[in-house]
């Protein structure tokens, strides 16, 4: 709980550490990606988008998994903290899904010759993005905040269960059509340096996500404090 901005609570200390860690990590990632890893021969320089692309989608899926778990917990035992947790992770998940979609489109242009191919993974990711954007919008439509939180949790559960079904259905739908030429980068024949960089990027992005989530949750906590202060007006 933040009583005053001057209090140097351990929480602020952890936040600062995470923030600085994420920033340094991101700069380190740039060095690894642009200097350390070799140039991929077939795709050229643009293949280097792969590292942030994979780290973003990993974060997005991890975020939505956390939203799913928190939503179930909320429905079993409603609490403001659980809702804040779910909401913050959903927002960060949407941010990273956005990065995934945009980086994927930019990568796709020189490789596939088009920004967007209706391939199974792209389509699923776009639908995922749409579902969680609606999740985030939902409470603002409700007059009763408690109902808004509860309904968001319902969508948090359905949205996540829906993802694999959507993916399967889109995949099978696309089996009728020519597959886009996707360079199989995730094969085991990836050079070790590329693998290290991928793992490093995933770790750094996760730290970044945790930092952003804590910031996001802090806003809601401060808002709750504000509401409490106002309701006990003298």
């Amino acid at each position: 709980m933040l009583r005053s901005k001057h209090a140097s609570s351990p929480r602020r200390w952890v936040d600062d550490l995470l923030g600085v860690g994420a920033l340094v990590g991101m700069v380190g990632a740039l060095w690894l990606i642009f200097v350390y890893t070799p140039l991929e021969l077939v795709q050229g320089a643009v293949q280097k988008v792969f590292y942030i692309h994979l780290a973003s989608i990993w974060n997005a899926y991890a975020s939505f998994l956390l939203v799913f778990v928190a939503s179930i917990l909320y429905l079993r035992r409603p609490s403001a903290a659980t809702d804040r947790f779910a909401r913050a992770w959903a927002e960060i998940g949407v941010v990273f899904t956005t990065i995934t979609l945009i980086s994927g489109a930019i990568w796709g242009k020189p490789i596939w010759g088009t920004y967007w191919s209706w391939d199974a993974r792209l389509t699923t990711t776009l639908l995922l993005w749409l579902i969680y954007v609606v999740y985030l919008m939902l409470p603002s439509f409700m007059d009763d905040p408690e109902r808004g939180r509860r309904y968001a949790a319902v969508v948090g559960v359905i949205g996540f269960v829906d993802v694999p079904i959507v993916h399967m259905s889109v995949r099978w739908w696309r089996t009728l059509h020519p597959d886009p030429i996707v360079a199989n980068l995730e094969g085991p024949d990836l050079p070790a340096s590329m693998w290290y960089t991928v793992l490093y990027c995933i770790v750094v992005f996760t730290v970044l996500a945790v930092y952003l989530v804590r910031q996001r949750m802090q806003i809601d906590e401060l808002r709750a404090t504000l509401a409490r202060l106002r309701s006990t007006a003298v």
């Binding site: 639908l127 749409l130 579902i131 609606v134 919008m137 969508v155 359905i158 949205g159 829906d162 079904i165 959507v166 399967m168 259905s169 889109v170 099978w172 739908w173 009728l176």
Partner: peptide
């Protein structure tokens, strides 16, 4: 907004 993205599997399945 809620129904269209979540029922995509049903839509694809029925059309196909």
């Amino acid at each position: 907004l809620l129904l269209l993205p979540t029922t995509v599997p049903v839509l694809i399945g029925s059309v196909q």
